[in-house]
Amino acid sequence: MLNILFAAPEDYWPVYEGLLRDALAAKGIKAKLGTDLPPEEVDYIVYAPNDRLKDFSPFVRCRAVLGLWAGVEKIVGNKTLTMPLARMVDPGLTEGMREWVTGHVMRLHLEMDRHIFGQDGVWRPEVPPLARHRPVTVLGMGALGAACGQALAALGFPVRGWSRSLRKVEGIETFAGPDGLAEALRDAAVVVLLLPDTPETTNVLNAETLALLRKGAFVVNPGRGPLIDDDAMLAALDSGQVGHATLDVFRTEPLPVGHPYWAHPSVTVTPHIASTTRPSSSVTVIAENVARTEAGLPLLHEVDRARGY
């Protein structure tokens, strides 16, 4: 019998309890689940950032911490967390992100806002370019970035992808490293940010990199708020270098009421809803990782502490 601590915001537990029990049982795993188990008896921790668990040192026999979120920036630097850590790569999360990104890129590409919000009696017959004339760059070639890039490529967009280390993704021209970043961004008409939040990715879109984009480019950020230098973005919006920014994530959330993004006519703010972990599919990932660890196999999606994701 394994002891599995569920350490997440309180409103998660009623949703996850039954689903997680069933997923573990389907793997033949007998487990005691709870939100308040003796630390010295815990074998696994299912974790999402919460106010209750900050110190992992009492969990002396814990084999792994299994994250419910794709992002681990709130936990990866915790020095008391010495056991293996896995992040969530969930099919439902990937599907949701692909749908959100595709929808917003198409909205911007087809310039739909002009017609949706321009019902003022003015006939505007301007036709947008075809997708093949509007190159897209996706920053981040992990599971989410690759899925979004391939969906856009299937619609006819020329897609380039960038990551810290080179990854081959079918249908996407990929680049890596500092020199590759400039090449990937040069003349991009749409930029989608799906990088993790690490010291190396902070302000990856700044005055210098924004200047590489095609004049009037669109920026879509469902990744992490610190990926964008906000002052540089606002300046690029004001100058017309960036035509529109659709932003789902921010350095401070909720986005403060007085933040310039709220009132800027060329910014769309969405409240961190691009995608989220789906309980029904994420529990199968958790159960699979417990089963793998018990069988002596490596964790799926284990975090590289040196890289931060």
Rank of each mutant, 00 (worst) to 15 (best):
M1P: 11
L2P: 10
N3R: 15
N3F: 09
I4P: 00
L5D: 00
F6K: 00
F6T: 00
A7L: 10
P9L: 13
P14V: 13
E17H: 06
G18Y: 04
R21I: 01
D22Y: 05
K27I: 11
K30T: 15
A31Y: 06
K32R: 15
L33I: 09
G34M: 06
T35R: 13
P38C: 10
E41S: 11
E41M: 08
V42H: 03
V46M: 07
Y47Q: 08
Y47W: 15
R52Y: 13
R52E: 15
F56L: 12
F59G: 03
V60S: 13
C62I: 02
A64Q: 02
A64W: 04
L68V: 01
L68W: 08
A70Q: 04
G71H: 00
I75L: 12
K79W: 01
T80K: 10
L93G: 03
L93V: 08
E95I: 12
G96V: 05
M97R: 08
R98Y: 08
V101I: 12
R107T: 07
R107S: 13
L110Q: 14
H115C: 13
F117Q: 14
W123N: 12
V127H: 11
V127N: 09
P128C: 01
P128I: 09
A131H: 12
V136S: 05
G142W: 02
A143R: 06
G145W: 11
G145P: 12
G149F: 03
G149Q: 04
A154Q: 14
G156P: 09
R160M: 03
R164D: 04
R164M: 14
S165K: 13
R167H: 12
K168N: 07
G171K: 07
T174A: 03
P178L: 08
G180K: 14
A184F: 05
R186F: 13
D187S: 11
A188T: 04
A188I: 01
L195I: 10
D197I: 12
D197H: 14
P199F: 02
T201K: 02
T202R: 15
T202K: 11
V204H: 07
L205H: 10
L212M: 08
L213A: 04
V219P: 07
N221F: 00
N221E: 08
G223Y: 06
G223H: 07
P226A: 00
L227F: 07
L227M: 11
I228N: 00
D231G: 11
A232R: 03
L234V: 12
A235V: 09
A236Q: 00
L247N: 06
L247Y: 00
V249K: 01
F250S: 06
L255I: 01
L255D: 04
H259Y: 12
H259Q: 14
P260H: 13
P260S: 10
P260L: 03
W262G: 03
H264E: 09
T268H: 02
T268E: 04
H272R: 14
I273L: 14
S275G: 07
S282F: 10
T284C: 07
N289R: 05
R292L: 03
R292S: 02
A295F: 07
L300F: 08
D304T: 08
A306D: 13
G308E: 02
